[in-house]
Write a protein that binds this DNA or RNA. Sequence first.
DNA 1: CTGCAACTGAGACTCAGTCTCAATTAAACT
DNA 2: AGTTTAATTGAGACTGAGTCTCAGTTGCAG
Lengths: 168, 168
Amino acid sequence: MPPVQRELNRFQDFLSGRGLKLTRERTALVREIFGTHYHFEADELLLKMKGKSLKISRATVYRTLELLVKSGLVRRVHLGEEHYHYEHVRGDSHHDHLICTTCGTVIEFQDPQMQARQHEICLRKKFIATSHNLQILGICETCQKKGERPHSPDRVQSIGLDAMLLRK
Amino acid sequence: MPPVQRELNRFQDFLSGRGLKLTRERTALVREIFGTHYHFEADELLLKMKGKSLKISRATVYRTLELLVKSGLVRRVHLGEEHYHYEHVRGDSHHDHLICTTCGTVIEFQDPQMQARQHEICLRKKFIATSHNLQILGICETCQKKGERPHSPDRVQSIGLDAMLLRK
DNA sequence: CTGCAACTGAGACTCAGTCTCAATTAAACT
DNA sequence: AGTTTAATTGAGACTGAGTCTCAGTTGCAG
């Protein structure tokens, strides 16, 4: 049994629990997502589906992604770009991302001590956290070796990049 | 001398250093931004300027914001929504945000230990960080007391919100 | 097998942001 | 003060990501 089957079953359960249907389109999308991608974008997925025999519209792609997010199979993340990215949800759900601004690679990391700090801060501010969002932007090991410069420096900075880095 | 003058001078320096001009429009925008807002959105600013005697176009607002970001006077941040927000840059530049998903309030915090953790992680992954981006979403003290429910739960979650919270 | 609520695709729409281009203007230079 | 000229501006067309509508289609409970 291909591993995708597990996700299909879970999605099916989720849907029927709410009186929704597992259609051909939804099946095809789940297969595509869990068969290949790990991090992906909605538009990229849309494009991939264009190549298949069963054509799927933009609206359906977005609608299905929403359902997958609600079902807990997929997570929607900001990776420092304008639009959202999506990723599979697996057992080790609590991780954040290092994002290479040169090649776009996404590296996951997990750090219990950081979680602890966040807890501590919320306590101090009497804030009840429901979720968080952390990306660290920079240059990955491979690109450091290649000695490349980031492609789009202006896009990259979003918090705390100091003004020194600015070029004309 | 109004405090805004300091920012105007700095902006002037920045501009003339690159052969750019301090126009009436740019002056008006800097006055507006540093006179009132702290966190703001581009469109909100555009709207405010509509009410003034000197009308300023959308294009100019965006162009000026870009310059202000480059000059280091203003920072562009993601606050967990689709579009960008902007904030003044002050001395204590290294902070992150707690964002109340009920009332929209933004609380800043600063935590050196967290910085240290991030450093540690980058070392471990041989990653050279240039910037980072952290928001913690949740419910602020005031809203907890009011016992209100978040307005748009689906918008809110973006990383690590567990599936338990989902409603039909 | 049937009925109907859920689903779909096409394309109009929105929203934030970018781009173009002809007309205007800041400011360096007489 | 007047000239020059590159930078700047506004109007509005455009873009990209995502949402919405509605008439036609389809999964599936009975």
